[in-house]
């Protein structure tokens, strides 16, 4: 149900864009110019707002998860990347985490072997497909910069060239297109097939997958199957960023608007969803802090100095007789006998 519900919504969105463009007067302007802009502004504003909101909360304690040997004695080899004690080490750890998904690479799966023997085997599929998905997504986004820039920057050309180096088909097939769709499919199937993952998945997990798959599919359809008027599209997209709305909207295929509307939805949905892990991963205190809490004092801005320990004086008042009897040193000798009303020590 959670799957179908999400799928239904994405299909409805596509239908909405299609009919909107085909039937609604001014629909092309609405879906081609107005909504994308609104979505982009929403995306920017709320993305920044979320980051600011996160940053507003302090990090009261230094709580890195240490995944290797600490920095202690000079002759014990520290694991400087998984248990960094310096800023440089933290940069290294964050680089591995953000660009190579270090923690997912560590993934294991409990497996049973003949014997019977319980083995915790390495399980790198999630890491591999996650990496493929994110990187092909990145390359595709960068490739799309061609539509928003004039002249097109050199790196976009380079990416396009590298991406299409297979030189198969006309136009040449981009490897990232295949990888992207394949990886999204894998991530989706994983959610449906693995019982544990299906059980924890929410509609909010399927929806972005369908949305992104829809974007990929419509994009691929435009490039390889139903040729669209790229010149007009570029006029529109470039116009979007240069505020020149003179594109011949009527000559652009409805398929493009469906594609664009899904992207619009993604942008608007992004800051309110789990997709914000894009920002969160940079701020995660268990990863982006050095394990140097015994070396450098970490300051907690709301540390409450009024919380004091039960004082030694009060402790000694409670137990003085026993302490003296047991030969333990005391600060204050026993009062002369019969003095029942010893002043209460303050906490």
């Amino acid at each position: 149900m959670r799957v179908l519900y999400s799928l239904a919504i994405v299909l409805a969105l596509m239908l909405l864009a299609y009919t909107g463009v085909e039937v609604l007067p001014g629909g092309r302007t609405l879906f081609g110019v107005v909504l994308p802009w609104l979505a982009f502004v929403t995306f920017l504003f709320f993305f920044v707002a979320k980051i600011v909101d996160w940053a507003k909360s302090p990090v009261p304690f230094r709580i890195p998860t240490t995944c290797g040997q600490e920095n202690s004695l000079p002759w014990i080899k520290q694991n400087k990347l998984d248990c960094p004690s310096t800023t440089a080490g933290v940069w290294g750890r964050m680089f591995l985490e953000i660009f190579l998904f270090r923690s997912l690479f560590r993934n294991t799966r409990a497996e049973i072997h003949e014997g019977p023997k319980l083995v915790y085997g390495s399980s790198k599929y999630l890491w591999l497909f996650g990496l493929m998905f994110h990187y092909s997504f990145l390359v595709i986004v960068l490739r799309h910069m061609r539509l928003f820039t004039n002249p097109v920057p050199f790196f976009v050309h380079a990416l396009e060239f590298g991406d299409g180096f297979l030189q198969v088909g006309a136009p040449p097939i981009y490897i990232t297109d295949l990888v992207f769709l394949g990886a999204v499919t894998f991530l989706f199937l994983r959610r449906v097939v693995l019982p544990a993952i299906r059980y924890i998945s929410l509609p909010a997990d399927y929806f972005p997958l369908f949305l992104i798959f829809g974007i990929g599919l419509t994009g691929v359809a435009m490039r390889y199957f139903f040729r669209v008027d790229v010149i007009s599209i570029k006029t529109l997209t470039h116009g979007l960023v240069t505020f020149q709305f003179s594109a011949p909207l009527e000559s652009i295929s409805s398929l493009f608007f469906v594609h664009l509307f899904l992207v619009t939805t993604l942008m608007a949905y992004f800051p309110f969803s789990k997709l914000m892990h894009l920002g969160g991963v940079f701020l995660s205190p268990t990863r982006n802090m050095a394990n140097n809490s015994r070396m450098v004092r970490h300051i907690n801005p709301w540390n409450d100095p009024s919380i004091k320990p039960h004082s030694y004086a009060a402790y000694e008042d409670d137990f003085r007789e026993f302490m003296v009897e047991a030969g333990l040193p005391v600060e204050k000798e026993l009062e002369p006998k019969a003095d029942e009303n010893a002043p209460a020590a303050s906490e």
Partner: peptide
């Protein structure tokens, strides 16, 4: 056979 000590 989502494996674990219990299931195993």
């Amino acid at each position: 056979r989502f494996a674990n000590p219990l299931g195993q």
